[in-house]
């Protein structure tokens, strides 16, 4: 199988599994909605303050639920010993990682597509005519969350206490992504300068690329044994 074929097959398998069970998406969407409500209670009820905090609230919810999604992505493989079968296929493990990543990224995109309008409705994210840039921020930010989440989920699948450990490992690493995404989103919704938005998006691109390349190269070592 060609690499593209492998990546696509693994991602398609994950999506099909998700479409039939819907457990990961249900859990992450509900969880993210709850985070929105809790932060709304904690920071509200002043409408003005909530609107100021909206980008932060959105990305906090996305980051928290991305950990759940990453955990499910490898947890479902772990349950029936499917991960072993997956690693036995005569394809390079790098492509398996990219396939799992694509599957997870797809789910996060669905989550982002549901959560962003909800956040706009509840707190206000007035991007107006700059929505293509907001969309780009979402695409890049979620890719960063997905790259790191999937990698650490794979590393921790065979560890004790992995549910507790995963967020501890992910969050310190993922802070630059959250920072850049929040900054870009809040600049876009408050009419900030285009050049500032571009510099934050540039940081996101650099971060995504570096981590994507390194995580892919080192993934075979993470999975073995």
């Amino acid at each position: 199988m060609s690499p593209w074929n492998t990546i696509w097959t693994v991602a398609l398998k994950d999506w099909r599994l998700e479409w039939r069970s819907r457990d990961s998406l249900t859990a992450t969407v509900f969880f993210a909605g709850l985070v929105l409500l809790i932060l709304g209670f904690a920071l509200g009820p002043s409408r003005q303050r909530l609107q100021q905090a909206a980008p932060g609230i959105l990305w906090t919810a996305l980051a928290f639920s991305s950990v759940l999604a990453a955990q499910r992505s490898f947890g479902s493989e772990q349950e029936a010993g499917a991960l072993e079968a997956l690693t036995l296929y005569p394809v390079a493990h790098e492509w398996i990682y990219l396939g799992k990543l694509l599957g997870n990224y797809g789910q996060l995109l669905v989550l982002g597509a549901l959560l962003t309008p909800l956040c706009d409705l509840l707190f206000g994210l007035p991007a107006g005519p700059r929505w293509p840039e907001l969309l780009l921020t979402l695409l890049l930010g979620l890719l960063g969350l997905s790259v790191i989440g999937c990698f650490y989920a794979a590393v921790t699948t065979q560890l004790r206490a992995r549910e507790a450990l995963l967020p501890v490992l992910i969050f310190p690493v993922v802070v630059p992504v959250i920072l850049a995404s929040v900054k870009a989103t809040s600049l876009l919704t408050t009419g900030g300068l285009g050049s500032e938005v571009r510099s934050w998006l540039g940081l996101l691109v650099v971060f995504d690329l570096i981590y994507l390349v390194c995580a892919t190269l080192i993934f075979p070592y993470a999975l073995e044994g």
């Binding site: 590393v155 310190p172 690493v173 850049a180 940081l203 981590y211 390194c214 080192i218 044994g225």
Partner: peptide
Amino acid sequence: RVAAVIAIIGTLDIPVNYMSVYW
């Protein structure tokens, strides 16, 4: 093996963070 993998990916954060200071 697992510790080495985590250390390598973790160390990447140091130059990235260092650059983000300048950004």
